[in-house]
Computed example of a mutant assay.
Amino acid sequence: MNDRMTTPWGELALARFPEDPRERLRAWDASDDYLLRHLADREVPLSGAVVVLGDRWGALVTALAAHRPVQITDSYLGQEATRANLARNDVETGAVTLLTTQDPPPERVDVLLVRVPKSLALLEDQLLRLAPAVHEGTVVVGTGMVKEIHTSTLRLFERILGPTRTSLAEKKARLIFCTPETAKEPPANPWPHTYTLPDDIGPASGATVVNHAGVFCAERLDIGTRFFLKHLPYDTGGARVVDLGCGNGVVGTAIALADPEAEVLFTDESFQAVASAEATYKANGVSGHAEFRVGDGLVGVPAGSVDLVLNNPPFHSHQATTDATAWRMFSEARRALRPGGELWVIGNRHLGYHLKLRRLFGNSELVASDPKFVVLRAVRE
């Protein structure tokens, strides 16, 4: 959906990435609008090093491009949306510096604007990484929808940076104001987090899992992945395997542990996730062949080049429930698979993935089920 956002600095044409004419979700929301209006109405000085953390689709940095901001994001899709939106609004190349959450943070921050992420852990990690660059004169303003900002969010700003308060709500959005205290010694960063898998899940039993902040199920193995691990096709015969939407990489690592001859591609749109997958793989001393790629699913993987795709698709895009991501993952998997290649999917029973697989592949087999999850197999004909 290509939409036009009115800002204090003019009107912007904005879209999510990948752009889909059927998409009804905008590339900005009321919290982005609230923050930009606050900056203009209060004449907040946007001088020096302006850093925007968590800008979801580039609306904030596109609006503030004249101030040459730095964007820090965990999302490859968000970063690509930003590039496209800057070009769409004729912003010069290089006006915005694009960094990922895995890049070294700026050495100095004079204005810190934070779009509160869904993950409190990711917010903690990023504030801790940025804290050394913040000084007493740094302007810190956060923004988010009311349902995204909790007491724990405010406590996190306060514990790491300094005294924190919130604004009144407008259009179900709220601002966060934080006054940095440089004498404050920030706590040690607890991320990445490491844990050991249980002993009853097949080849990955007892394996080490490394999770960077913000990656799904950072503290322990989730029940869906546990169920998937018990039913994976481990006898791959040195196949070309993709862990699609790899998260911490435990699924692909389990395949590699079972079959060191397998070639495993770990791919995710989250920079934190791919870093976690690589760390998990290396932590277990796997002697196989692996590739780690941040990107848009299987885009760029040659058609007919893959034997097996393993997928636990997300059904949320930030706070919105949608099957668009799953549909694109299944479609890309079908394109990338060779004839006779297989897509294995785990999902909640109520999501009806078997219907989508039948539409795309012409077949869908139930491999295993329990009261909550199903494991499905589709074959590329």
Rank of each mutant, 00 (worst) to 15 (best):
F330P: 03
R42N: 03
Q319M: 02
A258R: 06
K184S: 06
T138Q: 01
S305Q: 05
P18M: 02
Q102T: 14
D3F: 08
S167H: 11
Y34V: 02
L53C: 06
G78N: 15
Q79W: 13
E170C: 07
W57V: 08
D323Y: 01
G78R: 04
G10Y: 08
P203F: 07
A254Y: 08
Y234L: 13
V111H: 00
V301E: 09
D259C: 00
L98V: 13
S75L: 02
V286Y: 07
L257S: 01
L337S: 02
H354R: 07
L197V: 02
V374H: 03
G206C: 03
V301S: 02
T236H: 06
V114M: 03
P132G: 02
A258F: 04
A59I: 06
N211K: 05
V141T: 13
H289R: 13
R174N: 04
L357E: 03
V44R: 00
A324N: 03
G352C: 09
L221D: 08
G304R: 12
L168S: 15
L161W: 02
A258K: 03
R24M: 14
D323G: 13
I176T: 11
S47P: 05
T151M: 09
T322V: 11
F216C: 11
A65H: 15
E158N: 13
T253M: 15
R328W: 06
S287C: 11
V114F: 03
D307G: 12
F315G: 06
L343F: 14
S276Y: 01
D74P: 05
K171W: 12
E92H: 02
S287Y: 01
T151Q: 12
K172T: 12
L36T: 07
